[in-house]
Design a protein around this nucleic acid. Structure first.
Length: 601
RNA sequence: CGGGAUGUGGCCCAGCUUGGUAGGGCGCCGCGUUCGGGACGCGGAGGUCGCGAGUUCGAAUCUCGCCAUCCCGACCA
């Protein structure tokens, strides 16, 4: 490609609405332009990156035995009603109505469509297993689109769906996808980590997310450097820690004390000398449940966690089996329970549908809690004796420093960008949508499913988050829009133009993706643009080097330049590109081998 | 949905408090000088000041309504 004909333009200034590096740089480098909130146009440079990520994903999916299909973006409401997700999915699903008044959705995901498809085609165990995937635009009407393509309303996603005869088959398909994902993310050059995750609205039990590690990531992770445990904090298991090193103290008698003005745990600790591990806080939630084909009942739920802990709402939601949970407004809590907000507590609490407690509160002794009247707290409240939770569970949000649930070493906190997620779904969708087959023994059985997503456009953004500097993007070679930029310093200099063209043609002939910057711009402009867009290798053809029959070859990542004699220039660049490609491929191979060794051992 | 803010040439912004008919930088076009890290000079093009009402002799500026966008919180690949 010739820069003079390439449809692109770089910006000198940062766009006003870009918060994070990837968004800022994608706009400045001319990869994307915003069309409207959360919706972007991809210019040729950006589209090339998306295509290269997608091609890598496609290669690895094919390699893992999956088959590409094309599924519709517009999906009928009916199949979503069959699985209950027409309501369950909520306002994030982009709905539309045709001229006849029939309802549709723009696909946020494709379990319903693909399961319905398979239900019509698969009749025998002989047709299984099968894994179908597609790479396509997905639509989610995000509450708050932000960070450019990172959280867009229209994004490119690869989604795959596996169908197996039994649970073991599903697990095998899942493992194959896990290997494929590991290869994909190594090949695109990401620093990533698979973590245990909550399966959310899609359902199923086993689920892992592939997280690109980045401080700008929206997901909070905990990782154990000692044993390798890693989890999304939404999912991370809390290990109850004792209140005293010496072991539990005996139950003391319940005592009501005057606590004028005390409304928070800190005030209780500071003003009344209660150790924070002997405090418990109560939080009131509205839990909404799915009813018959639509919204169902709502409950007021009180939840108890130790005063030094935070509640994990995802755990609460899962415990309750609720569609959603949200903090209940103060006035309603007061109206229903009669308790003042800052002095509410579990002892003698009335008006709530359920009282759930974290393990630490159920196991601990002698808690200071609100007494449900103004300016009064209880000391030494004990579960079982003074209040009785309807359920006890792991409800606390795990934080950095907490013990690892596997090996008890302290966990470290990290931030991550979720670039992929894999699920073992089980038979929920196959049962609901009739994906049954006849087994070897003649019985009719539902297919065991897994589903597997990769955010293609998000992966491109994640790569930029991890790899950029003050000058611009530093692409991994596998997904760079072009691998090499050939920059003649002065295009009106015949010798320079000729040498640049020669190198450019040789690179193309060798299968290297090259761009020649033949624009009549000043050298500084061309260098700055090359750095901003982030081509991994730059070949500078200028008067200085040419005077000694050479050109300069610069590595974008290290910014190191070597002078190479003209006759060997193209060859050396080709070798450098091939070496860089090999490195990433090798990483994928090694990681896969390690996974296989792990599975075998 | 709550809370906050912003809409002024393609981009980044000033002007608004104190109404008087729109300005800078970048970018764009022409000419010249320049030319290994975002040049300089001269000349030029380009604006329904988000939209609609209102107040006023007169509105980018004041008032009301609407729309859009962004940021902070509750959701997610």
């Amino acid at each position: 490609m010739r820069a003079s004909r390439l449809f692109f333009r770089t910006l000198r200034e940062d766009p006003a609405d870009a918060e994070i590096a990837s968004h800022r740089l994608m706009v400045r480098a001319g990869l994307i332009r915003k069309v409207t909130s959360g919706i972007y146009a991809y210019l040729p440079l950006g589209q090339r990156v998306v295509r290269k990520v997608a091609d890598i994903v496609r290669e690895e999916m094919d390699r893992a035995g999956a088959q590409e299909v094309g599924l519709p973006i517009v999906q009928p409401a009916e199949i979503w009603r069959q699985t209950g997700r027409w309501f369950e999915y909520g306002p994030e699903m982009w709905r539309l109505t045709d001229r006849h008044g029939r309802e549709y959705a723009l696909g946020p995901t494709h379990e319903e469509v693909v399961t319905t498809l398979v239900a019509g085609e698969v009749t025998s165990f002989r047709q299984l297993p099968v894994n179908l995937y597609q790479i396509q635009n997905k639509f989610r009407d995000e509450v708050r689109p932000r960070f450019g393509v990172m959280r867009a309303r229209d994004f490119v996603m690869k989604d795959a769906y596996s169908f197996d005869v039994d649970e073991a088959g599903m697990a095998a398909s899942y493992a194959a996808m896990r290997r494929a994902y590991t290869r994909v993310f190594h090949r695109v050059g990401l620093d990533f980590r698979p973590v245990e995750s909550d399966s959310g609205a899609i359902g199923g039990k086993v689920s892992e997310e592939f997280m690109a590690l980045a401080d700008s990531g929206e997901a909070s992770l905990v990782v154990c450097e000692a044993c390798g445990y890693a989890a999304n904090v939404e999912r991370a298991e809390g290990v109850p820690t004792p209140q005293e090193d010496a072991g539990p103290e005996p139950e003391k008698p319940l005592e009501k004390i005057r606590t004028p003005g005390v409304r928070t745990i800190e005030e209780l600790v500071r003003g009344h000398g209660v150790p924070i591990r002997h405090t418990a806080k109560i939080l009131f939630y509205h839990a909404s449940y799915l009813g018959e084909g639509g919204p169902g009942r709502r409950e007021l739920v009180a939840a108890l966690v130790r005063g030094d802990r935070q509640l994990n709402e995802v755990k609460l939601k899962n415990l309750l089996g609720a569609l959603s949970v949200e903090l209940a407004p103060e006035d309603e809590v007061r109206r229903r329970t009669g308790a003042p907000f800052g002095s509410a507590g579990p002892v003698g609490l009335a008006g709530v549908d359920r009282l759930v407690a974290d393990h630490e509160v159920a196991l601990g002794r002698n808690f200071a809690v609100g007494a449900n009247e103004e300016d009064r707290h209880y000391l030494n409240a004990n579960a079982g004796r003074d209040f009785r939770p309807t359920e006890t569970a792991d409800l606390r949000a795990v934080a950095a420093g907490d013990p690892c649930p596997r090996c008890r070493s302290p966990l470290a906190g990290r931030r991550g960008i979720e670039v992929g997620q894999i699920f073992q779904l089980g038979t929920r969708y196959s049962t609901q949508l009739g994906a049954y087959f006849t087994a070897e023994d003649g019985t009719r059985r539902p297919a065991w499913m897994g589903c597997y997503g990769i955010g293609v456009t998000r992966t491109a953004a994640a790569a930029i988050e991890q790899r950029h500097d003050a000058y611009g993007i530093v692409w991994p070679i596998s997904i760079a829009p072009f691998e090499v930029a050939v920059v003649p310093v002065h295009v009106d200099d015949e010798a320079q133009r000729h040498a640049a063209e020669e190198i450019y043609r040789t690179l193309l002939a060798a299968g290297v993706e090259a761009l020649v910057d033949d624009r009549p711009e000043r050298p500084g402009v061309k260098f700055a643009d090359a750095d901003l867009v982030g081509f991994p290798v730059r070949v500078t053809v200028g008067e200085r080097a040419l005077a000694e029959g050479s050109v300069d070859v610069t590595d974008r990542a290290t910014r190191e330049t070597v002078r190479v004699p003209l006759p060997q220039a193209a060859e050396r660049v080709v070798e450098r590109v091939r070496q860089a490609r090999r490195e990433l491929a090798l990483r994928a191979d090694r990681a896969e081998a390690a996974l296989e060794a792990q599975a075998a051992g």
